[in-house]
Design a binder for these strands. Structure first.
Lengths: 186, 186
DNA sequence: AATTTCATGTAACCAGTTACATGATTCA
DNA sequence: TGAATCATGTAACTGGTTACATGAAATT
């Protein structure tokens, strides 16, 4: 059934975007260029090879849009295997290491949850994110205290920004939880 | 005078650490493994080649510590050219794109400022960081509003975390400015 | 007619990842 | 004596970056 290589962040971003709306490589690149998802880079030398890899692995399929027969557009959509791979990733619960070292990946995962993750699962996800973020913030706060130096406060200050950043994430996650819990099911 | 290739973040981190304390590749790797600077990755396959590149470019020099003659340690220190390269980078003022897309690099730059950047320059640096962070937060806030969707609030919420993160950075920068300004010169 | 935009790619390069290799030394 | 740690590295792989290439269609 093919080597189970890990999908890159870019590949996962592409899967998620294609799931929201089947589209061409060009469309995808435009999204990277014009929206905050562009952090995950949309250079042509990255996007097109990534799309090829996804197609080779059978996670996406292309159908040619022939409305302009001389300028064919390859429109990609998810295959069932692609949908499954995306869902598997999206529904993974965050680990401590991901919270600490890969927060952007977690945010991407969260953004792609609609339709793939139950409300309960989403809330659990956010809860772990909040708790582990606070925990790491506390760790960083200890480090900041250890390296405090009145003459050269830069290092300690830099770590303090880390503290604030993780606390901000924790606060955000708790607000998001409220948002999901206060909404009664429709 | 040698091609002026751009230094990687890892190379700059190594320069900064070596400047603080001349040390061996192993020592450096230990710091990556045990302190928050580890974000910039300290895998052997990255660190040793990076050190070799820095040596080739004449930015660091090695002297052998022969206290244990059978187990020599190569201790690296900055050359004048290395100090100059580090100082050039550290004293660069942040650009909008760096604030938005490379905040970690800016933080590293800030952390290595002691002894390389005047107080005035440091404050200017933080001021730009604060202003551009707030500006981008406002941009993101507009995006969040545009994509607001009661049924699937995930995307909008994810962008909101971006808003909060950049605001946090701006707030932190302003506090840091106060810190530098309230300290009378000693 | 000329420029911009649509649309898809390739090529060269580069640095990082994981995993492995080597051998001395200190510790249990 | 055997295991962990000190200390430095290499090799294979991978995916991203920049820059370039191509040509049709829409716009000015």
């Amino acid at each position: 059934m093919g080597r189970r290589r890990r999908l890159t962040l870019l590949e996962l971003a592409l899967l998620g975007l294609i799931r929201l709306q089947p589209q061409s490589g060009y469309d995808l690149r435009k999204q990277f260029a014009t929206t905050p998802i562009g952090r995950f880079s949309g250079s042509p030398g990255a996007v097109y090879p990534a799309l090829k890899r996804l197609r080779t692995r059978g996670l996406i399929a292309a159908s040619v849009d022939a409305t302009h027969p001389l300028r064919p557009r390859e429109v990609f959509r998810l295959t069932p295997a692609g949908e499954a791979a995306l869902a598997e990733w999206v529904t993974r619960q965050p680990t401590r290491d991901e919270v600490v070292y890969a927060p952007e990946e977690l945010l991407l995962r969260f953004a792609f949850m609609p339709g793939l993750s139950s409300r309960k699962h989403t809330v659990d996800f956010l809860q772990i994110l909040a708790d582990e973020s606070d925990r790491y913030a506390a760790e960083l706060a200890r480090v900041a205290d250890e390296i405090a130096d009145d003459r050269a406060p830069h290092g300690s200050l830099a770590v303090r920004l880390g503290v604030e950043s993780y606390r901000t994430r924790a606060r955000w996650a708790r607000q998001a939880i409220n948002r999901f819990q206060s909404r009664s099911r429709t």
